[in-house]
Computed example of a mutant assay.
Amino acid sequence: MKSSRNDLSRCHWCSADPIYQAYHDQEWGVPEYDAQRLFEKLLLDGFQAGLSWITILKKRERYRQVYQGFDAQFMAAQTDADLQELMLDPGIIRNRLKVHAARQNARAWLALAEQTDPAAWLWQFVGGQPLINHFAVHAEVPAITTEAQAMSKALKQAGFSFVGPTICYAFMQATGMVMDHTLDCFRHAELAGGAATVKQQ
């Protein structure tokens, strides 16, 4: 029932916003192995830099529209004129560096895909399996880890931008590479117990 859903104990960062709660309950920390979805999440975390995640979450559908479902081929082929037009769209973050970085990252993604499976390549930084943490409170959750630093360095070497260690760790948390729901959150027991399933939105 709706009332019981609202009464659930969630992570400290999750507000009462229904969109945020749905994201927390259904997506965050759930292992994601689909390359296309990983590409989308990596770019969205880059767009978040300097902003709140809920801001990006509320613009996600518009991003999916303008990028044709985060089609890397489409994004990589965008012209400077296309990007300038995107800068006029109020439905996305109109930051020139981020708009241009998205095209750059799409090209880097395609180059990576020619050499290896991008999903497996990203998951290698956690050994191919989710790292299950058991933090009691939000203050214990790190912003950067050695795994995130390694991913950031490798992504930059592969030609990506907006992939600093903090962004990479947020990406790892979002995609379930690390499971950072705190012990007081109802999702911790579900995900730590191996009940995680990929939920498409």
Rank of each mutant, 00 (worst) to 15 (best):
P18S: 12
A22Q: 12
V137H: 13
K58P: 04
W121H: 04
P118C: 11
Q48D: 05
S161Y: 00
Q48C: 07
Q26G: 08
G194N: 10
P165N: 08
H181G: 02
A170S: 15
H181I: 10
H12R: 07
R5N: 09
C185Q: 06
Q173M: 06
F39V: 03
Y33E: 08
P31N: 10
N133S: 06
Q129E: 13
I132A: 10
E147Q: 13
P18Q: 06
D34K: 01
R187M: 07
R187L: 10
Q115N: 07
A113W: 11
H24V: 02
M151A: 05
P90C: 07
E114V: 03
Q36G: 04
M75K: 05
F70Y: 04
A119W: 01
V66E: 03
E147C: 15
G91F: 14
R94Q: 15
I56C: 04
A174Y: 03
Q84C: 15
P90Q: 06
L183A: 07
V66T: 13
A22T: 12
D117R: 02
T146H: 08
T145P: 09
Y23C: 09
Q124N: 12
V66K: 04
N6C: 11
N133C: 05
A139M: 12
A77D: 15
I93W: 11
G91Q: 10
W109I: 05
M87N: 08
E85D: 11
E85Y: 10
